[in-house]
Each structure stands twice: as C-alpha cells, then as structure tokens.
C-alpha cells in the first residue's frame, strides 16, 4: 500500500478523526489550525481557523455537519463543517483535552485540564444539529475529578455512561445523567497516564492506550479487562479496526528522548495486534516521530496516523490485509460454508 502523506500541519499532530462515512478526515495539531481532508485522495478540503492555542482534540458529529474542537486556549469551538464558519465558542478556565460527540450527536462531552487551581472536569453540552440554530451556553452536566484528573473520555452505547481514563492509569464509569461514579478500575499500571480511549463500533467495549506500554480491551459496562496488548514502547493511541478483528496501536519513544536515538530504534511504527488472539501481526513504519494518534476508517478499509513529526499518513489497506486469517478462523469459516 502506498500511504498518502498529508503535510498541512506545521507542528505535531494531536488527534485525527474520520467522519462516520469515512470520506473525510479531520486532523488537529499544535499549530492552531484544524484541517479537513478527503480520505480517498488526501486532498485538503479546507481549514478551520480561529483558535488561539494548540489544538488538542477534534470530533465530528454523526451527520458531518458540526465539528467540535478543543484547544489550549481554553475554548471549545463548534464549526460548520461545510463552510468552516465558527458557530459557537465555550470558554473554560483551563485547556480542553478531549471532546466527543455522543452516538446520536445530541450531546458533546469535553474533558478539561486540571491546572491553575482548577480541578479537572468533564462537561456535557447539549447540541442542536443545525448550523443556524443557537447552541446552549451552559453544560447540562459537570463532573469534577477530586482524585486523579481525567485525560480522555468517551460515550458508551445510547449515551448511558461516560467512560473516563485517568492520569493514574485507572478507568472510571460515570452515569451520564447524574454524573455519579459507578465504577473505577485500575486497569493500567499506577501513575501511568491513559493516553487514549477509542470505542468499538457498537460501544460495548473500548480500547485504552497507556504510557505503561500496553493497551487493553475493556468491557464498557463492567470495566473488565478483556484483552491486553503488550508492547515495548509507551503508547499514545489505540484504535479498533472495523471489518477485521485487529487493533492498531501507535506510540513511540517520548518526544523529548527522540533525538538521543536513531529512527530505527525509536519504534515509530503503527503496531497491528489481533484483537482476540493478542498477537502482534505486523507493523507499519513511516513516521519519524512517535505516533500521537491513530484512527481507523469506519468501514475498515484503511487507517490514518498522525505523528509528532507533523505528518498525517493515510493508508488504504491492500488485499493481504483482508485475506489474513488465523488457521482457526479459516476452519470456522469453512465449517460455516459447509
């Protein structure tokens, strides 16, 4: 496969998101610009400018009409996807590290940083899916982390729960109506930051990436660890592929240590693990900095990775990727056919 290199950003990438149909890719970097690209050919459709600080996070609603971004300038902005017009700005006392639309696009959650005497919070805003309608000014829910701040968060199925990954390596489950904490599990090594949470397509389980060099597949309702994928490098991102039972892990040496080692030793590769057998089945190299974010095409035909090197690499899988099967899988398939 020949990856498409997107060079629209001048600084390291922070997050990449495909829209639900998989035809657009939204990317944010620390250079204050959001870019949107056609995933098929890497053509840049446009940019959303208006933020005053590094962008940390981006998400697009299910109908690809509204875009939410969170930045280090302590704001969340809602954009009109088609025109690049800023529709709404919410101000916060601290930086916004993660935004995510709910499955139906009616709610938006945001994780704010703990800093300057403010505790980390998760806020939930109601969203009107109309580019001309006014958006609410105040959140409907605010969860404040007294113990360890949240770094990443995601919606469960039917907007029932909010899963939050914490700085101390634990994952907690909150009721999205009341904000009550239902469970908290130390699934990663203590004091190892959880860097990413990405939901499976049906949101019944999710994958976490952590600085403790492992990624875990966790059941949403019970926070039970289903699978563990161990690597040899701190992980920044993990994604579950559609169509094939794989997970893609992205990571690499810490950015500050990169200059002390060669690119070969830096392990700046996307690692593919089999979701069920937990085996590493391949790597895709190409970045010359740690991978900060990986995202899978919703139809499972490709994936995109964004690195500390400022590049987005969009990959469209070749046939061998789809053909790969374990012997067991082949046997079951043959039995089904017979």
């Amino acid at each position: 496969m020949r990856p498409i290199l997107l060079q629209g950003h001048e600084r390291s990438l922070t997050q990449i998101k495909y829209n639900r149909d998989g035809d657009l890719i939204f990317s944010t970097a620390k250079d204050q610009i959001v870019s949107v690209w056609y995933s098929a050919n890497g053509e840049r459709l446009g940019t959303y400018s208006g933020h005053q600080g590094a962008l940390w996070t981006v998400d697009v609603n299910p109908t690809t009409t509204l875009l939410a971004t969170g930045a280090a300038d302590n704001t969340i902005k809602i954009w009109d996807v088609q025109t690049g017009r800023c529709l709404k700005t919410w101000d916060f006392p601290t930086a916004v590290k993660r935004v995510e639309f709910s499955e139906d696009g009616t709610l938006l959650l945001a994780v704010t940083e703990m800093r300057m005497g403010y505790l980390g919070t998760v806020v939930v805003f109601p969203i009107v899916n109309d580019v001309n309608a006014p958006q609410a000014d105040t959140p409907v829910l605010r969860i404040t982390f007294e113990q360890s701040k949240g770094t990443v968060a995601a919606w469960s199925a039917l907007n029932k729960h909010i899963v939050v990954g914490h700085e101390d390596g634990s994952v907690s489950l909150y009721d999205s109506k009341t904000g009550e904490q239902l469970a908290n599990e130390q699934i990663h090594e203590p004091d190892m930051l959880i860097t990413d949470i990405q939901m499976a397509p049906d949101r019944t389980y999710f994958v976490t990436a952590s600085k403790d060099k492992s990624a875990k597949l966790v059941e949403t309702s019970t926070l039970k660890v289903l699978k563990t994928y161990a690597t040899d490098t701190p992980l920044n991102s993990a994604a579950i592929t559609a169509k094939k039972d794989f997970v893609i892990l992205g990571g690499g040496q810490e950015a500050r240590d990169v200059t002390t080692t060669s690119a070969r030793e830096g392990r700046f590769e996307a690692r593919f693990f089999h979701k069920i057998f937990e085996d590493e089945i391949g790597r895709v190299r190409g970045h010359f900095g740690p991978l900060n974010t990986v995202a899978c095409h919703p139809q499972g035909t490709g994936y995109a990775s964004g690195g500390e090197d400022g590049y987005v690499r969009v990959h469209h899988f070749d046939q061998p990727y789809f053909d790969f099967m374990y012997e067991v899988e082949k046997m079951t398939r043959n039995q089904q056919i017979v």
Partner: peptide, 15 residues
C-alpha cells in the same frame, strides 16, 4: 504542497 504519496509499504499481516 500539502498532499504527497509516500513510498510503497509492504504490509502483510502474519503471525
């Protein structure tokens, strides 16, 4: 200026 095609990567998943 923003989009280019990288070199071909052979990616064959295998155990």
């Amino acid at each position: 200026s923003t989009t280019s095609v990288g070199e071909n990567i052979l990616f064959r998943p295998s155990i």
